[in-house]
């Protein structure tokens, strides 16, 4: 993880140096307009990777922001609804397998460290300004499957668009490497999460 962070940082600085402007031009970084403090988020998400079923979940989370770049998503909890794929329906219908033959995620809880190296603003059609940030996440998740709990380690990337000082829209993309537990477990499983959240920011002084 440290190596990845260092690599990202070096890449970012290399790109920035590549953009160094003429000697007479001053390069300044503006103050942030928005800052986060206590973040409550309510989101909906998708687990798209399983070939037998697709998960659609609702998630609630709390994140404490310690600085502009560092935060801890103290806890998140999600309840998952599973939709069968056509492949699974075909196996059940044509080969007589029971629905219980397929392991499904029922809910999951987790915690994450959040590192936010990028803050920016967008001009929309050269008329309006929108502020936002991009962050990396790393953490642990515990998945409740139909018959067993399985732990996972997750890495991810996210973005936020500020609506106001108190409200923002947050998008998270994370991949969980799930450690095999139980007889029906594969070697190592991947559970990808896509989450879109409405975030409420409390206690920020600016």
């Amino acid at each position: 993880m440290l190596r990845v962070l260092v690599a990202v940082s070096v890449l970012g600085s290399a790109q920035a140096w590549a953009q160094v402007e003429e000697p007479t031009v001053m390069n300044a970084v503006q103050e942030r307009t928005y800052r986060m403090q206590h973040e409550l988020s309510l989101g909906v998400g998708v687990l798209p990777l399983d070939p037998y079923s697709k998960g659609i979940y609702a998630q609630f989370a709390y994140t404490a922001h310690f600085s502009d770049t560092f935060a801890w998503q103290v806890a998140r909890g999600a309840y998952n609804y599973t939709a069968k794929t056509s492949l699974r329906s075909q196996i059940e219908r044509d080969f007589g397998f029971l629905p219980t033959a397929f392991d499904e995620i029922q809910f999951f809880v987790g915690t994450n460290v959040v590192w936010t190296p990028i803050y920016g603003k967008l001009s929309v059609a050269d008329r309006w300004d929108v502020h936002g940030e991009v962050f990396l996440t790393a953490g642990a998740t515990l998945f409740s499957y139909t018959r067993v709990f399985r732990p996972g380690v997750n890495l991810g990337l996210g973005g936020r668009v500020f609506l106001s000082r108190a409200l923002s829209l947050r998008f998270d993309l994370a991949d969980n490497v799930v450690i095999p537990v139980g007889a029906s477990a594969p070697n190592l499983g991947n559970v990808m999460e896509l989450t879109l959240s409405l975030a409420l920011n409390l206690g920020a002084t600016e």
């Binding site: 970012g12 600085s13 920035a16 300044a28 190296p117 990028i118 920016g120």
Partner: peptide
Amino acid sequence: KFAVLNRWVL
């Protein structure tokens, strides 16, 4: 236009 670690502009 975005700032990386409050130091560089991209």
